[in-house]
Each structure stands twice: as structure tokens, then as C-alpha cells.
């Protein structure tokens, strides 16, 4: 049991964003969701955490039909699924410690000492020093804020990680760090990760499978090697330039 979409349709006014998409994320995999802007990638993720409800169809997180959950049921869904946003989305008025503890206080039944331990443990996972705990988000660099945001999502120990364009606005070094973290954490914590991104190079390096959305439909859902060899013009336009940027050993790994 994992995350499953069954014929999900979603429109905003006259615009059809998702047009009956169905797919299932395999347990423990890193599934990249690619597509042009406005093709429903972020909308897909928001359906999983119940921030949007499908017009028709169902979204399942394990045995929970997300659209049918009441407020209490949604808390259960959100305990299972952690979401990392495009922005760091840290609460400005709280310290980094309070930000990371925020989800723990609501989603996990822990006492203060356990919360303190969990915050420090999670901070180490994203390679941030403990000195940042008493700082406010504004005092950290953007890349560090992103990592603190990732720590906040990881703290309640979700089984599914959802990343909405996690490297947007980052310099190449920080982008590399975040991508590496997504890979490391997914493998180390054995979580299923769904990553919405434009970063094709990263997708080719760390994804297990790639889902390509176009005009509300799934254009392709396949492993990386198959995706790279696809003849679909949209997919080719995504990967053509990226392939040239790959190192020879990475190209060899993809059997190119």
C-alpha cells in the first residue's frame, strides 16, 4: 500500500488541470513528476495532503481516501505524508527549534524532552549545526532555510515525502546539496518520495521512475532508462539539453 491516484479529475473554472490521472507510487521509490508550468504537478501533490479535493476520482494514502476525510482524518493523512514546499515556508515569528517542533507538537504525541531530542536528531539528518536552533529563519541563508524546512517535515517521521520544486531559487551548490539529501534520506529512512521538479539533471541522477504530465494527462510513467529513450517530443525537449550536461559515467549508467 502506498499513494494511489484513481481517475482523478480537477478543474479550476473552465481550466482542466488533471484529466482523469491514475498512477501508484511504489513503496520506497523516488518518483519524479515532471511537466511544463501549469500542468498540474503541484496540484497533484496538494491532492495527496488533502489541501485540494478531486472533482471526481479518488486519491488514496494507504487505505485512506483523502477526499473523504474529515479534519481528524486529514491529520492522520498529514502524519503519514510530509510536504516540503517551493519556499522554505518557515514561520518567521518562531525560532528554528520552534519551527521544527511545530509539527511534532501537533502530529506526534511526544513530551518536551522527546521533542528536544527529535529536533536535534532531525537537524543532524539535514547537516545543520545545533547553533541554528535559537536563530530565526531570517538570520539563515536561503539554502539553510530550505534544509531547516526539510528538517521540520522529517521530524514527525512521515512515511511519504512530497517535494514541491525543492530546489527553486537555489544556487547550484545548494541545489546539489538538497538533491543529495532527497536521495540520502529516501534511502536511509526508507520513505517513498514524490518530487515535483524542473530539474531534469537531478531526476536522471536520483529518480527511480519519472512521471511526465501534459495537458492534465500522464504522458509517460516509466523508469529513468526508458524515459531517456522516449521518442515523445515533450520528453525529448526536457532531456536533450540535460543529457549533454551529464558526466560520461552517468551517461554510461543510463546506457546511452
Amino acid at each position: 500500500m502506498s499513494i494511489r491516484f484513481e481517475a482523478v479529475q480537477k478543474s479550476f473554472g473552465p481550466k482542466h488541470i488533471l484529466d482523469g490521472i491514475s498512477f501508484e507510487a511504489a513503496p520506497g521509490e523516488i518518483l519524479f513528476i515532471l511537466g511544463k508550468s501549469g500542468m498540474g504537478k503541484s496540484v497533484t501533490l496538494k491532492h495527496i495532503v488533502g489541501m485540494l479535493k478531486p472533482d471526481s476520482g479518488r486519491v488514496w494514502v494507504e487505505d485512506l481516501s483523502v477526499g473523504d476525510q474529515d479534519a481528524q482524518g486529514l491529520v492522520q493523512v498529514r502524519t503519514l505524508c510530509g510536504m516540503v514546499f517551493q519556499h522554505p515556508a518557515l514561520l518567521d515569528s518562531l525560532t528554528i527549534f520552534e519551527n521544527i517542533a511545530f509539527g511534532l507538537r501537533r502530529l506526534a504525541r511526544l513530551n518536551e524532552a522527546e521533542i528536544d531530542d527529535r529536533v536535534r536528531e532531525t537537524l543532524a539528518l539535514v547537516h545543520l549545526p545545533e547553533s541554528v536552533l535559537q536563530q530565526y529563519p531570517i538570520e539563515l541563508s536561503y539554502g539553510m532555510q530550505k534544509r531547516a524546512s526539510l528538517a521540520r517535515t522529517l521530524a514527525p517521521k512521515p512515511k511519504y515525502l512530497l517535494f514541491d520544486e525543492p530546489t527553486t531559487g537555489l544556487d547550484p551548490v545548494s541545489t546539489q546539496t538538497i538533491n543529495q539529501l532527497i536521495f540520502e534520506l529516501s534511502r536511509k529512512l526508507k520513505v517513498t518520495s514524490l518530487v515535483v521538479s524542473h530539474d531534469m539533471q537531478c531526476a536522471l541522477k536520483i529518480a527511480d521512475r519519472i512521471l511526465v504530465l501534459d495537458s492534465g494527462k500522464i504522458l509517460s510513467l516509466a523508469d529513468v532508462k526508458t524515459t531517456v529513450k522516449s521518442k515523445e517530443p515533450l520528453i525529448r525537449s526536457f532531456i536533450e539539453e540535460t543529457l549533454n550536461l551529464l558526466a560520461p559515467e552517468e551517461r554510461k549508467k543510463l546506457e546511452l
Binding site: 518567521d92 511545530f102 524546512s149
Partner: peptide, 9 residues
Amino acid sequence: QIDAIECLG
């Protein structure tokens, strides 16, 4: 930030 608050239960 509001979306994050919601996602954190």
C-alpha cells in the same frame, strides 16, 4: 507558510 501550517496538522 499557511499551507505549511495546514500540512503540519
